[in-house]
């Protein structure tokens, strides 16, 4: 049962990968990477059930965090082109300077 679900999960991941490779817009790629990450978290949980070893779930927890941090870094990088200024200041400065495209 879990094997069938795992195979369906990998099919879903393959489709997300196709979107990642083809994604015309930059933000399509960000979205694809983020959702690919979520899917791998679930895949890891399912797989550790398949071989009934509880260790895979530790990796799933870890990657759920890493995926979030990666996505935030990408967004901050592209939106404000600086990794180290606090988000709030950047938003305010853009809002104040009316530069908000």
């Amino acid at each position: 049962m879990i094997f069938v679900v795992t195979i369906m999960m990998t099919a879903a991941m393959a489709m997300i990968l196709a979107r990642l490779l083809r994604g015309p817009e930059l933000y399509d790629r960000v979205l694809a990477v983020n959702s690919f990450g979520t899917k791998t978290v679930l895949f890891l949980c399912l797989f550790s059930f398949l071989i009934d070893r509880p260790d895979g779930i530790d990796i799933a927890i870890l990657y759920a965090l890493m995926n979030f941090i990666g996505t935030i870094a990408v967004l901050k990088f592209f939106r404000y082109r600086s990794l180290d200024i606090a988000l709030a200041q950047m938003a305010l400065r853009r809002a104040v300077s009316g530069e908000d495209r």
Partner: peptide, 21 residues
């Protein structure tokens, strides 16, 4: 974790995409 992070991430992506025009 997933409950906390994925909606926030999707929100952040949409917000950034909209802001980027």
């Amino acid at each position: 974790f997933l409950f906390l992070t994925s909606p926030t991430a999707t929100h952040a992506v949409a917000n950034a995409a909209h802001k980027a025009g």
